[in-house]
Amino acid sequence: MPSPASPTDAPQRSRFSWTYFASPATFYPLAGAMIPWFAAAAALLCAAGLYVGFFVAPTDATQGESYRIIFIHVGAAWMSMFLYVVMAFWAVIGLAWNTRLAAMMASAIAPTGALFTFLALWTGALWGKPTWGTWWVWDARLTSELILLFLYIGFMALQAAIDDPRRADRAGAVLAIVGVINVPVIYFSVQWWNTLHQGASVSVSRAPSMAATMFLGMILFALGFWMYSIAAALARARSIMLERERRTDWVVSEVRKAT
């Protein structure tokens, strides 16, 4: 692992103070060192998920083979909710302490969160057509997930519309924080409104009401998408750091190292 930026760049802080990696200059090389590991974990977990999902998990008694969409549908849906909460968390940190790196992390997560929200809606529609007989219905779960997609897109559009990065961070943070209430709404929508979408087969309070191999395939993909999201967000954060701190010395040394 390459050593973080030389101490002359970062203010004089011992490496083990918990804010040592809170500055772009020191976090940039650390993130760079971590990305390959997360990317490799993502590839392995998704490959294992594909194998278990298609070659180990049996045919479903009632749905036949169409249920195999569950492996990526649930993984994408969990990621869409989880990433929004993580984005809101960084938004709060960035707003409260006015730290640049926290705000950059929030901006780095949004596109990946939007992608998984779209994939959750897409795979859900393709699973709904054969099993429910329709691509879309204004069901509580589906509608709140669609709102989540609009929140992600709104966050990205709002930040893109404001030139000054610091003001864009604050505006985006407020939207992210306001929108985070939608995540529990999505999660509990199947119980509160009990419309078409089925209830949770997996919950923290009781054992999953699923066959073990089906559950394993789903967990493998969920973990794989999680590792992927970390790698993607860190990669995007590094680009954001380089762009926003393009006049600093540490960026100059990074560019010289990279080219």
Partner: peptide
């Protein structure tokens, strides 16, 4: 099992989405 369109439609779009995001990054 006759659901090829739906299953592969889901998996291919998911793979394409991830690949496009990686390319953009």
């Amino acid at each position: 099992g006759g659901y090829g369109l739906y299953v592969w439609g889901s998996y291919l779009v998911t793979a394409a989405g991830l690949a496009i995001e990686i390319a953009l990054l």
